[in-house]
Simulated assay, not measured.
Amino acid sequence: MKTTNLNFRHLYYFWMVAKEGSVTRAAERLDVAVQTISAQLSLLEQSLGKSLFAPQGRRLVLTEAGRVALGYADQIFLLGEQMLDALANSDVERTMRLTVGISDSLPKLISARLLEAALGLPERVKLVCYEDKFESLLGDLSVHKLDVVLTDRSVPPGATLRVFSHLLGESELTLFGVPSLAKKYRTDFPQSLNGAPILLPTRNNAIRGRIDHWFEVNGIHPNVVGEFDDNALLNTFGRNGLGLFPAPSALSKDVEEQFGAVPVGEMSKVREQFYAISNERKIKHPAIDAILLAIHRK
């Protein structure tokens, strides 16, 4: 078996430089001299026999070998953090950790609802949640940095990653607005929406195509005043009265309480779906299983 004398301090310094984008920023973050970082990187590259960075102007960019090394370093140091958490909790009480990736297009109220079941287990559950783009989360799931991904779309057919989609549920969409806007556009809905200020998800969002089709079928030409990748930002602009915005009908009460917005009208036959994506065809994590059971009982 081939062995190498990998120095994990050298690897950690490499990891920090890759994350910070420069030796100077990594040195500031670690409170060590720039020369120390540079020397440790040089030793790591010598031991691996590969260049991990290449200069690009004033910045350092990862080489192909550097990108491979970074992927493994991410896993190594994430596992280190998980080990420390597990050891810190082992003397107090048994804690189940659930590391969740949440797609930035998924309504935050929906993700909170879905995770409530996990927190209701008899065992203590520690949630660790990360928000990112759908594709990035799938990559993290495939290398076991995440236990599950909550999202508004299934894994596309023909995907090379060995991950599996589990439909959690769906809800029709309703257009909401602050009371003054809702009052103005509620009468003669949906024809009243011609020229109405609308806030929508961007076109790479799973639900956007269905919304555009609904407008087209109903002969409506709204004034799209904003498009957002991030669902939370869309709702914030809606709360400030800058336009009407779509949200799942099932969350009507929550939308009113959190954003001060009331229903204008339901977008009939426009449904948003919610998925859990896992590494296993059959869910094995008790907390994820609890989420699925709670959904199926409703």
Rank of each mutant, 00 (worst) to 15 (best):
G241D: 03
Y12A: 15
V149G: 11
T99G: 01
A276V: 06
S105T: 12
A112V: 08
S105F: 13
L98V: 02
R94A: 15
D31G: 11
T36K: 02
F274L: 11
L242G: 01
L87A: 13
F215D: 00
P286Y: 09
A54N: 13
L167C: 10
T160A: 09
A290Q: 06
M1S: 15
A27W: 04
G226R: 03
L150A: 02
D289E: 15
L199R: 03
P190K: 12
M83I: 13
G219Y: 13
H10Q: 15
E45G: 02
H296M: 11
E123A: 09
E170F: 10
D212T: 11
S142P: 03
V224R: 10
L30D: 11
F245T: 07
Y13C: 09
A54I: 10
L161C: 07
S51W: 09
S51V: 03
D31V: 08
N194K: 12
L62T: 06
L200A: 05
N279E: 07
E266F: 00
N223T: 10
R208P: 01
L48I: 00
L98E: 02
H221M: 05
A86G: 06
N223Q: 12
L48C: 04
S103Y: 07
P263Q: 00
L62F: 10
F77E: 14
L114Y: 08
N240S: 14
L30G: 13
E257L: 12
N89T: 13
V17S: 07
Q273W: 09
V262S: 03
A54Y: 15
D140H: 12
A33V: 02
V224K: 05
H166C: 05
L119N: 09
N5V: 13
P286W: 05
D91P: 03
Q56K: 07
L41A: 01
D31Y: 12
S136N: 14
L193Q: 05
M16S: 10
V23L: 09
L244E: 00
S142N: 14
R59M: 08
